[in-house]
């Protein structure tokens, strides 16, 4: 098995053993497989990409091929079906992140999401100095071909949580190597590149 990314390691630390997990946009299932093997969790993955689906099935995972945009999660799952719903680096690619968050909070007790911070100083500087949409290691795409159609800053996300009565239980802000620094803790919205949030309904 390939090595676990630092982001996945950080997420794993937030999972209680023997819990029930749904991994939205589970890719080839690396994280879910790790959680099953290490924390004895049970649950399902959802993924739209056919090739990643095949890889996840080969890992012995329960994976449901599904488009997070077209499928109402509530069609498949009853309220409070899961202890955790994990969605890594997918919030910014779905058509209505706010509605998906609501669905997730209905069927899961706690939500773990990760996403890139558009408010990072490099993005701000590029836009300010070049007048063009930023291209960085975290956001390598052009404006016209990016899958990231709903970019937000940490502040934006936290405002959305406030508006929707969502409680932020934990937050970790890291750089692309998934390391945290004093600076990131003092000025996360300037210095943090990727955020991991654990939230629940208030």
């Amino acid at each position: 098995m390939s090595q676990l990314t630092p982001e996945f390691k950080l997420i794993s630390e937030w999972i209680t053993p023997n819990s029930r997990v749904l991994d939205l946009g589970c890719g080839d299932g690396q994280l879910l497989k790790h959680l099953i093997d290490t924390y004895n969790v049970t649950g399902y993955g959802m993924e739209i990409d056919p090739h990643k689906n095949i890889q996840a099935i080969e890992k012995g995972l329960n994976v449901i091929q599904s488009d997070l945009n077209s499928h109402d999660l509530a069609d498949y799952f009853d309220p409070n079906s899961f202890d955790y719903i994990i969605m890594t680096q997918a919030l910014q690619v779905v058509s209505r992140p706010d509605q998906l968050l609501e669905d997730m909070l209905t069927i899961g007790k706690q939500i773990i999401v990760t996403f890139p911070n558009f408010g990072h100083w490099r993005n701000r500087a590029q836009l300010l100095l070049t007048g063009r949409m930023p291209q960085t290691d975290t956001l390598p795409y052009h404006w016209f071909d990016t899958p990231n159609i709903h970019m937000c800053t940490f502040k934006d996300f936290e405002t959305l949580c406030e508006d929707k009565n969502i409680e932020i239980i934990a937050r970790t802000v890291v750089n692309t190597e998934h390391r945290s620094s004093l600076g990131m803790r003092i000025a996360p919205n300037w210095l943090g590149e990727v955020a991991l949030y654990k939230v629940q309904k208030k």
Binding site: P50, N53, N62, I64, Q65, D75, Y76
Partner: peptide
Amino acid sequence: HEIVKALLDNDTDVCYAE
């Protein structure tokens, strides 16, 4: 989907491909 939904309701091990 109806079949998958019913299996999920029972926490059955299931994979689904479209």
